[in-house]
Amino acid sequence: MLGEALFGPQPAAEAVIAEEAGAPVGFALFFHNFSTWKGRRGLYLEDLYVTPVARGRGVGGALLRYLAGIAVERNCARFEWAVLDWNADAIAVYRRMGAVGLEDWTVQRVEGEALRRMAGA
């Protein structure tokens, strides 16, 4: 399923892999969204992962900077992602890199049976 989503005829997302000495130490999975407010697409980071042994060595920051470069290159209006509110270490890194928390917004989710009910199924 993941292979089709990333490498099929209509990829739903893209991924980049961070390597050290030829070995993978992290990845970022992202896709484009669209802002009617800005009239342009944006870049949304869905997953950022760094192996435990590589944490604290700048791998996550390098991945974020790389994706920011993609967003600029593709003329995206913004680059955004969600983070769990208890992940203080990650939030601190994001703030140091210039990210701003959207205090007025909350993420809403419908899945599973609730999604089927909403669809009238």
Score class of each variant (00 low, 15 high):
M1V: 10
A5R: 12
A5M: 15
A5F: 12
L6F: 14
L6S: 12
F7G: 15
F7D: 15
G8F: 02
P9Q: 14
A12G: 15
A15P: 01
V16H: 08
V16Q: 07
V16K: 11
E19L: 02
A21Y: 03
A21H: 08
G22R: 12
P24G: 08
P24Y: 04
P24A: 06
P24S: 09
V25S: 10
G26K: 13
F27E: 00
F27C: 01
F27P: 00
A28P: 01
F30M: 11
F31E: 02
N33C: 13
F34Y: 15
T36K: 09
K38V: 06
R40A: 15
Y44A: 12
L45C: 08
E46T: 08
L48W: 07
L48H: 07
Y49K: 03
T51N: 09
P52W: 02
P52I: 03
V53I: 02
V53G: 05
A54Q: 07
R55L: 07
R57Q: 14
R57N: 03
R57M: 03
G60W: 00
G60R: 09
G61M: 06
L63H: 05
R65P: 03
A68P: 06
A68Q: 07
V72W: 03
V72D: 04
E73G: 12
N75G: 09
N75E: 15
E80M: 05
W81P: 02
W81A: 01
A82D: 15
V83L: 05
L84P: 00
N87K: 05
N87R: 02
A88K: 10
A88F: 00
A88Q: 10
D89V: 14
D89P: 13
D89S: 15
I91V: 08
A92K: 10
A92E: 09
A92C: 00
V93L: 15
V93D: 00
R96V: 01
G98F: 01
G98N: 09
G98M: 06
A99N: 03
V100F: 06
V100G: 07
G101E: 11
G101H: 09
G101I: 03
L102W: 11
E103C: 04
W105S: 01
T106Y: 04
T106S: 11
V107D: 02
Q108P: 00
Q108L: 15
Q108I: 09
R109S: 07
R109H: 08
E111R: 13
E111G: 02
A114E: 07
A114M: 07
A114L: 14
L115C: 06
R116S: 06
R116A: 14
A121D: 13
A121Y: 10
